[in-house]
């Protein structure tokens, strides 16, 4: 009889879970009054993402310094805004968000993208708010660091020949595609790899 009851329990549990109430999403968490974004199009979480990219290409990169943004914990931080044109990820990209209790990791070992082209085929922008502590471009000799690249190239840094060693602590990223459609296959954000959540 024990085996019978367990068999019944197993099947009933299966049916009940298939028909069970959707309690996990049926009651949205009550929202406290959230602060309004400041100099970003949305309110970013306060823990910046650590972004590392072994190799990337982009049409160009421009930098705006001393941008004050507001974070979700209602603090503000003065940081930089980086604008890429058609940002492609060539190898080994890792985006990590660690809020102290858990870590979300997006890992793209090969080719991916964080930017695309518009409906006219022109490069579209990817904007990052934060601090890029390392980025290297080889022009006979390797030049590393945003300030060094600005000193060498001027306000518009060309990255069509590629860049390497990207390391950034980024509060927010926005990519745009003005011709998004259901059947669109040229998606500006293309992340083939893995998504993991780890808790210490």
């Amino acid at each position: 009889m024990r085996s019978i009851s367990l068999v019944i329990t197993l099947f009933v549990a299966l049916v009940v879970t298939a028909l069970g109430p959707t309690r996990l999403v049926s009651e949205a968490r009550a929202l406290a009054a959230a602060p309004a974004p400041l100099n970003t199009p949305f309110l970013p979480a306060s823990a910046p993402m650590r972004v590392t990219i072994a190799s990337l290409t982009a049409v160009n990169l421009s930098v705006t310094t001393n941008v004050t943004i507001r974070l979700a914990d209602n603090t503000t931080v003065t940081t930089n805004r980086y604008t890429f044109q058609k940002l492609s990820l060539n190898s080994n990209t890792v985006i990590t968000s660690n809020n102290g209790t858990s870590t979300v990791t997006v890992r793209v070992p090969g080719y991916g993208s964080l930017g695309g082209t518009d409906s006219a085929g022109k490069p579209q922008t990817t904007v990052m708010w934060g601090n890029i502590s390392r980025l290297c471009v080889t022009v006979i000799l390797q030049i590393c660091g945003i300030q060094g690249l600005l000193n060498f190239f001027g306000s518009l840094i060309p990255l069509t020949a590629g860049a390497s060693g990207f390391i950034g602590d980024i509060y927010a990223i926005r990519t745009m595609d003005d011709h998004a459609e259901l059947s669109e296959t040229q998606n500006p954000v293309h992340l083939p790899g893995s998504l993991t959540v780890t808790t210490p």
């Binding site: 949305f42 979480a45 509060y171 927010a172 954000v189």
Partner: peptide, 11 residues
């Protein structure tokens, strides 16, 4: 994971 339109990270 492919995303299209306006895409925001760390919202």
């Amino acid at each position: 994971l492919d995303m299209d339109g306006v895409v925001d990270l760390n919202v």
